[in-house]
């Protein structure tokens, strides 16, 4: 089963505070370890919302709103796609990641696969 593990921004991330070298090393080690566990399929992190934009559609009218946005903690900071055997396993990987990088919130969601659409 495939899960998308999304971690949310902290205010510091949104403010563009770069992770300390120790933190970067910890993240690197986590990535390496989850690759060694054979579970990590893909993953990316994103820049603060000031470097992004939002497309909103209301009643068919499209609005493009440039960042930054006020609700920093409601924004995704990055994701990983994990291949694991259960939701519980994905949660354990998310737990380790949260403790390591100091994320305050992580969502673990199952990726829709072809068999779900049958």
């Amino acid at each position: 089963m495939r899960y998308m593990v999304m971690h949310y921004q902290t205010q510091a991330m949104e403010d563009g505070v770069l992770p300390t070298p120790e933190m970067q090393a910890a993240i690197g080690q986590y990535m390496q370890e989850s690759a060694m566990a054979g579970v990590l399929l893909s993953g990316e992190g994103v820049a603060p919302s000031s470097a992004g934009a939002r497309v909103e559609v209301t009643d068919g009218r499209v609005r493009v709103i440039d960042g930054p946005y006020a609700e920093a903690k409601e924004l995704i900071a990055g994701f990983a796609i994990l291949e694991v055997r259960s939701l519980a396993e994905a949660v354990e990987h998310a737990r380790k990641f949260a403790l390591l990088v100091g994320a305050e919130r992580i969502d673990v969601r199952r990726v829709i696969e072809y068999s779900d659409l049958q």
């Binding site: 390496q32 690759a35 060694m36 566990a37 054979g38 579970v39 990590l40 291949e83």
Partner: peptide, 14 residues
């Protein structure tokens, strides 16, 4: 197949 992939991914990272 999933377990073989897991092993293959492990070995490739090692």
């Amino acid at each position: 197949c999933d377990e073989a992939l897991r092993l293959g991914r492990m070995l490739a990272s090692l």
